[in-house]
């Protein structure tokens, strides 16, 4: 099996955010919010780091 790098990032972020959301918060609503924030930061941070590396190289 092979997947694109972006798909790997999305899958990693999804599963990790679910576990973080459940374990780091107590109420279902805050779990959902924290999980969504983690997911956005994981994916957004990776995309931002990727562009930063591209600019460094070029």
């Amino acid at each position: 099996m092979t997947i694109s790098h972006f798909a790997a990032v999305v899958l990693f972020s999804l599963f990790t955010s679910i576990v973080f959301g459940i374990t780091q918060r107590s109420e279902p609503r805050s779990m959902l919010r924290f999980g969504a924030i983690c997911f956005a930061l994981f994916v957004g941070g990776t995309v931002a780091a990727s562009w930063a590396m591209w600019f460094i190289k070029h």
Binding site: L11, F12, L14, F15, T16, I18, V19, I22
Partner: peptide, 9 residues
């Protein structure tokens, strides 16, 4: 949810 996430990972 934890089971599915960790097993999928």
């Amino acid at each position: 949810l934890l089971m599915v996430s960790i097993i999928c990972m």
